[in-house]
Design a protein around this nucleic acid. Structure first.
Length: 747
RNA sequence: GCCGAAGUGGCGGAACUGGCAGACGCGCCGGACUCAAAAUCCGGUUCCCUCCGGGGAGUGUGGGUUCGAUUCCCACCUUCGGCACCA
């Protein structure tokens, strides 16, 4: 008998599937049954040069699920595409020369070929790449829709600015407050930046998490990210300026304990205070320094810092005049950018009070009741919250309020390799959207992508010059590009109608396939991507472009595949990548091993220590089934151990893949069946049934060798053969063991 | 600090609903085949004791509930992940 030859077998069946278009799904016809569809999407990859083990994990999980669904009679849409805009290609181009487009497209060719060799059954007819004008044209189209709806807008936002280079700097380009390139002291500058109004959906993003079949930890991370806090907004007055300043607090019950007042350095009132302050110079210096610090630097500071303004605020509840400080531990973009400081009941305020010798007044005792709080003394704190807010409300000095830590999504990037924002600036008309019929605004070729001046696109002078769409007078194009998270917020919609040149999509197609039934990807996208995509669906639904509000009904988050963990150094140390793995062992063994190594949702340390064992198993299966094909008797399998084991395995594997998504244990179960078959031998009257069952069950994992063996067993087209069903009657055992315990011991 | 996940043999892990802990695999030990090796096959492999019949301990630690706990409850320890001056 010839040896198991994965290369030959895999090439053969990959050819057969390509010819048969086995992974292609046609558009649903009229009256197609939505209950018989399954939409399986893995997060699309960034086209780096080669596949890595993380890719092998994600796409093998998706392939197992989609093959399983297909054989369960569902119409499965399982597409692939590339998240091909973004920094790595741009940086590679800067480093090595060449155009980001060339590098990207070369990588796409290489990686697609590797994907085919892994046997992943994608519908290649629907291939998308974000950097192609046929895709990003619709990024622009969607941007215009959101812009019209007021969900995309510009606002001045502080950026780090190098006054010498006249350039916006990324956080990483600032070292010790100095420009990475010229060493000049970096200043903060308010620049107009583009934002999506994600905060408009803060409540829905939180509430609609409930209905999703997502891992709890991902939901928890999103809740945390959205950060809804209930509290109150309270007005303090600044008599010298005849103005009121609102603060947000979750602890209105501690209002009588406010002993000082703090403004964020960026607070608009600070400028007014500086002009009339005895500490003007010191304040100006402090505000300037705080502006160029990163948030983390502020948080990491060992001691709190701040400057007294010389002004006082009046506490509305007791008319106490408390000093107003400016301190960078108060953030402008949360709450109102101003706080009442209650050192007795807030750690941070306490640290500040100790540093600057400010008074501490306890207003809640050990029993949780108010003290030093006038008419509210003796009330439990929880109850006092409402009572104090009501009291303030009657006097127009306070009201209940909700604050979110979720911020609007800033999506302008001062980078080249991204989707141009279709806006023309006109001296008379401001930011004017490019008309729909002029899309796409093509990304021009330029000489130099280095982020040394302002955005690299500014150097494409001919491109920048454009007539104002409103008046025709010469204007200039937006030179910033979109964050690549824009591309990935809706790509799964475009897969449903990828070649449509007249519209972003056909609503019926998108509504048929979506929401995605199974989304698969790393937990590293738990917040950004998975929040942005959810925001997009809510906005697009409100715009009447789609008929649903959540993109991903079921989410599987795979663990990290760690290379060279603590274990690696001990063993051989020669870690091999996916390409070599396939070359040496074949795609089937690689796929099986990747999912067998441990639970796919948990992090794992990649070692190739066990891959030989997996190859051994596949060879054993191959030999055993080949023998069965030649020698096993035909006909109905008689009831007995082996027949029952086969039925048990069907039940177990079906449940493991379908309900539990426990991919490693399904493989173990098939191994048990093969072990039993091996013991019974190829001439056992149930051998043929057991072999057919094993081959059929392993097909989602190891589709090539399964197809080959299926053919040897005298059948064809396993990929569309119905998934086996366990016979309940065969699962009943004639005898069973009854465990008897006496005094807690088995007897 | 807050939120979340997890601690089981030499290793990766299994035990799904409270019912024989260690499935499946790696590694290791022994054997068969072979001139020899590879490949393959068979047997063993949690730890301790053993008169070889078996006996005892055991799922991070300490308690608890239960006839019975890896599983449920309380407290603690450790590791990993996320958020983090969010008022």
């Amino acid at each position: 008998m010839e040896r198991y030859d994965p290369k030959a077998i895999e090439a053969k069946w990959q050819g057969v599937w390509a010819d048969a278009r086995a992974s292609h799904v046609p558009d649903p016809g009229p009256g197609a049954d939505r209950s018989k569809k399954s939409y399986v999407v893995e997060m699309w990859p960034y086209p780096s040069g080669t596949l890595h083990m993380g890719h092998v994990l994600v796409y093998t999980i998706g392939d197992v699920i989609s093959r399983f669904h297909r054989r369960n009679g569902l119409a499965v849409l399982h597409p692939i595409g590339f998240d091909s805009f973004g920094l790595p290609a741009e940086n590679a181009a800067i480093r090595e020369g060449g155009h980001p487009r060339e590098i990207t497209e070369r990588n796409i060719v290489t990686i697609s070929e590797s994907m085919r060799r892994m046997g992943w059954g994608f519908d290649w007819d629907r291939l998308l790449s974000a950097h192609e004008p046929s895709y990003y044209r619709w990024d622009q189209w969607l941007f215009l829709k959101l812009f019209e709806a007021g969900l995309a807008y510009r606002k001045a936002s502080p950026v780090k600015w190098c006054p010498v280079d006249q350039a916006v700097l990324a956080n990483e380009q600032v070292h010790d407050g100095r420009c990475e390139y010229c060493g000049a002291e970096v200043v903060s500058k308010n620049l107009e930046q583009w934002f999506f109004r994600t905060t408009a959906y803060a409540d829905e993003l939180l509430d609609e998490l409930e209905g999703l079949d997502w891992p709890d930890r991902v939901k928890a991370m999103q809740r945390n990210w959205i950060g809804r806090s209930e509290g109150a907004e309270i007005l303090f007055s600044v008599d010298e300026l005849e103005t009121d300043v609102p603060v947000f607090t979750t602890r209105p019950d501690t209002l009588f304990g406010a002993t000082f007042f703090v403004l964020a350095p960026e607070h608009p009132l600070v400028d007014q205070l500086i002009e009339r302050s005895p500490n003007a110079a010191e304040l100006r210096d402090y505000v300037g320094k705080a502006a160029v610090k990163r948030g983390e630097e502020r948080a990491a500071a060992e001691e709190k810092t701040g400057v007294f303004t010389g002004f006082f605020a009046t506490n509305p509840v007791n008319e106490a005049r408390i000093p107003i400080w400016v301190a960078d531990y108060v953030l402008m973009d949360y709450g109102t950018g101003a706080i009442m400081a209650v050192p007795a009941h807030d750690e941070r305020d306490l640290a500040f009070a100790e540093r600057f010798d400010l008074p501490v007044v306890t207003v809640i005792d050990d029993d949780g009741r108010l003290v030093n709080s006038a008419q509210f003394d003796g009330r439990p704190a929880e109850e006092a919250k409402g009572a104090i807010v009501d009291w303030l409300g009657e006097r127009g000095r306070g009201k209940t309020a909700i604050s979110f830590r979720l911020r609007d999504w800033g999506f302008s990037r001062q980078r080249y390799w991204g989707c141009p924002i279709p806006i023309v600036y006109c001296d008379d008309h401001g930011a004017v959207p490019v008309p729909y019929d002029e899309l796409p605004v093509l990304l021009p070729d330029i000489e130099d992508y280095k982020p040394k001046g302002i955005a690299p696109l500014a150097s494409a002078v001919d491109w920048v010059r454009a007539p104002c769409p409103t008046c025709g007078k010469e204007g200039r194009r937006e030179v910033e590009t979109m964050d690549t998270f824009v591309d990935s917020s809706w790509y799964f919609l475009r897969y449903c109608d990828p070649h449509n040149e007249d519209a972003v999509w056909d609503r019926e197609l998108v509504d048929f396939w979506n929401p995605v039934d199974q989304y698969i990807g790393g937990v590293d996208h738990a917040t950004m991507h998975l929040i942005y995509a959810r925001f997009f669906m809510k906005a697009l639904n409100d715009l009447g472009l789609i008929g649903f509000r959540e993109p991903f009904q079921n989410l599987f988050t795979n663990g990290w595949v760690q290379l060279g963990g603590s274990k690696m150094s001990k063993s051989k140390g020669n870690v091999i990548g996916p390409e070599e793995l396939v070359e040496e062992y074949g795609a089937d063994s690689a796929r099986l091993y990747m999912l067998f190594i441990g639970p796919a949702r948990e992090d794992m340390d990649w070692t190739d220590d066990g891959i030989d064992g997996m190859q051994r198993f596949v060879r054993r299966l191959y030999r055993l089934v080949s023998e069965v094909a030649e020698r096993a008797p035909a006909g109905e399998p008689p009831a007995g151990e082996l027949t029952r084991k086969a039925h048990e395995t069907i039940a177990k594997v079906t449940d493991d893949i379908g309900r539990r998504q426990s991919f490693n244990t399904a493989i173990a179960a098939i191994m048990e069946l093969v072990n039993e078959l091996s013991k019974a031998g190829p001439e056992d009257p149930a051998a043929r049934f057991a072999a057919e069952t094993a081959v059929s069950l392993i097909q989602p994992y190891a589709p090539h060798v399964a197809e080959e063996l299926w053919q040897r067993l005298g059948h064809e087209r396993l990929w569309e053969h119905a998934w086996p069903v366990a016979d309940d009657a065969q699962l009943v055992r004639d005898t069973f063991e009854l465990v008897v315990q006496v005094n807690g011991k088995v007897r």
